[in-house]
Amino acid sequence: MNNTPLTYTAGAQDENTFLRDLLASKLLLSHSLVVRLKHQNKIQVNGQLVHTNYRLQAGDFVTINIDLSEENNIIPESIPLDIVYEDEDFVAVNKPAGMSIHPSRLGGTGTLANAVTYHWQGLGRNILFRPINRLDKDTSGLVLIGKSQFAHQGIFNQLKQHKIDRRYIALVERALTRDHGHIDQPIARPDANKRRRIVHPAGQAATTHYQVLDRYPDHTLLSLKLETGRTHQIRVHLSYIGHPVSGDLLYGFASPLIKRQALHADRIRFTHPRSGKEVILDIPLAQDMQTAVDYLGNQSINR
């Protein structure tokens, strides 16, 4: 599955526009990507290689081959993948709990990066592993991965502008009284040698929106939406308001209902940078969380 080139036909409004300006304004390519494209002779107008200071004429046909030469140093490993979506620019995977996104050391194995690299190798591609969102090892759910610098950059721009909808489901301790709300508290890392984060005035701004899906006597099922993407953001914020994620040993305590933090990324919605169309990806709750929720529901009925 090779990348189809980006194309653009110049109109009367583009007359005498520098090609470099069109690449930034119409095709939304970053300066760093344009530099790499130039060095690898990937930019053409009417089938001919051109410099980016070329002045466009109406009717010019611009072609950008975004399939850049690059090397992925991740070790490919045959690990089962639950691929939810794939096109020439992205692959989305339902990551199981217990799997890290990326090796923590050179040559590491057993991660999503190893599995996806093996999958791409089977398609004849050796490209960098570029996860767009990252999940903790024991958080399950959707991970979106860009297949090129163009794809990653296009989504990263949407992330910066808060235009990507990332939704999570969490089972938390205790009954939350409010039906919905938001937690707007900065998050800091007090010790660079430790994983734990805290709410602190000197931290980075962070906002988490929540909606109650269901209540049980001692637990609440929440839908959460991130406005920012700080490390451990949901877990820190929910612990801060007194409702830690069930099973979260770092920010809460062990739970008899589940053997890991009960947090699952169930939706990603974004605008495709190539087509401009909206892409909505939804997946069901992870089985261990569904089992815990079903148990609590049955307990409530039988009370």
Rank of each mutant, 00 (worst) to 15 (best):
L159D: 09
V116P: 07
G110E: 08
Y251M: 14
N72G: 11
A92T: 08
L68A: 13
R36V: 05
K95L: 01
D165R: 07
Y168H: 15
T231H: 04
S275Q: 03
D138R: 03
L112M: 07
G98Q: 01
Y216K: 14
L263F: 02
D136N: 05
G247Y: 11
Q48W: 01
R134H: 13
R105H: 10
S246N: 01
I101V: 15
G252Q: 14
I127Q: 04
T177G: 13
G146L: 02
R178K: 06
A12I: 08
L106S: 15
A113F: 00
D266G: 12
P96V: 06
R166E: 08
H219S: 13
H232R: 06
L123P: 02
E71N: 12
N2H: 06
K137N: 04
I187A: 15
L142V: 01
K137L: 08
A286K: 08
A192Y: 06
R55D: 06
K160E: 11
R134D: 15
A115Q: 01
Q149I: 00
P186D: 07
I283F: 03
G229R: 05
G141R: 09
L23Y: 02
N94V: 09
T4Y: 04
A97R: 06
H102G: 12
V279L: 06
I241P: 05
L68Q: 12
G203F: 08
H264E: 10
S255H: 08
V91A: 14
G98N: 00
I169C: 15
A265I: 01
D294Y: 04
H264S: 14
E173S: 14
H39P: 01
R303T: 13
I283W: 01
I145G: 15
T220Q: 07
T207H: 05
N298A: 14
E15W: 00
R174P: 01
Q57I: 14
Q121W: 02
G146D: 02
N126E: 08
L19C: 14
E278N: 05
A92E: 08
A286F: 02
L296E: 14
I43R: 09
Y118K: 01
Q204V: 06
E227P: 06
A10N: 13
S104V: 04
G247A: 12
Q185R: 15
E71H: 10
H119F: 09
D294I: 01
L56T: 03
S30F: 08
R195M: 13
G181Y: 00
